[in-house]
Design a binder for these strands. Structure first.
Lengths: 131, 131
DNA sequence: ATAGGGGTTCTAGTTACTGGAAGGTCAAGG
DNA sequence: CCTTGACCTTCCAGTAACTAGAACCCCTAT
């Protein structure tokens, strides 16, 4: 299977697949002409990566997850710990974004949005450390 | 006022202040010896930037906000539109993160987290397009 | 022969800083 | 007067995870 087919099959852009190879996440074989050839196992790995990335795992965590996946002697505790850490980070980001959203939403609502210059959004930003 | 004092006053790292100058957000004067001198107006701008950044506005949006702030003939509609766009992006990220959090949280809860290899997290990731 | 649709590598750009190196400046102390 | 320490300066490189683009090779069908 060549890279284009793999891209279509997994939904991962060809450029990204090459990038994953560059950073050592997959190791497709090569044909005599230099073209990459992907085995079923490569396909499977890439699908795994795509799913892990879609859950927001950083690429380095994906590397660890892949290693754990292939280590049949793993302890599920290690996987869980990794996922838990990531979950904590997501929660933290959610908190930050929620706070931003709250403030920003208030500001947007309080702004007339007409052709006059008065604007509570700018007034708020201009305030030195209002919170 | 030199850069260290400004950094302490605004909470913005000196490196970041230099960066803001490099990208043209502030234009501090220089002393004879080459040191930056910050006026009250510079201070004010930097505080404005810090607050806008803390609301998640990208630096380029901060540039626009600053320009609007200084344009006494602005229309508040322009400010509101910018903020609304940013709010939409925040909402989108919140959606993504919430979805991730949901899935991930389920997976974490379903994993025993012991020394055995069986792990629903890995099983899920290995599943080709389960959603 | 050529046109097209693959493939390859390499470089650089994206965001918003941050760390570090090499070196200039200035006030205070011995 | 010299040195020490705390400032300051510029410049280069690295971060995350791709992505765009250039220049060029390969293969098949017309």
């Amino acid at each position: 299977m060549n890279i284009k087919s793999v891209s279509l099959a997994t939904g991962i852009p060809a450029k990204t697949i090459r990038y994953y190879e560059e950073v050592g996440l997959v190791h497709p074989a090569r044909e005599a002409n230099g073209y990459r050839v992907f085995s079923n196992s490569d396909l499977h790995k890439l699908a795994f990566l795509a799913r892990a990335r879609s859950l927001g795992f950083p690429v380095e965590s994906c590397r660890s997850l892949l290693a754990l996946y292939e280590d049949k002697d793993r302890a599920s505790a290690d996987v869980k710990a990794l996922a838990q850490r990531h979950l904590n980070e997501i929660d933290q980001k959610l908190d930050e974004l929620t706070t931003m959203r709250h403030t920003l939403s208030n500001l947007v609502q309080s702004c007339a949005g007409d052709d006059r210059p008065d604007c509570p959004i700018l007034s708020d930003l201009a305030q030195k450390m209002s919170n």
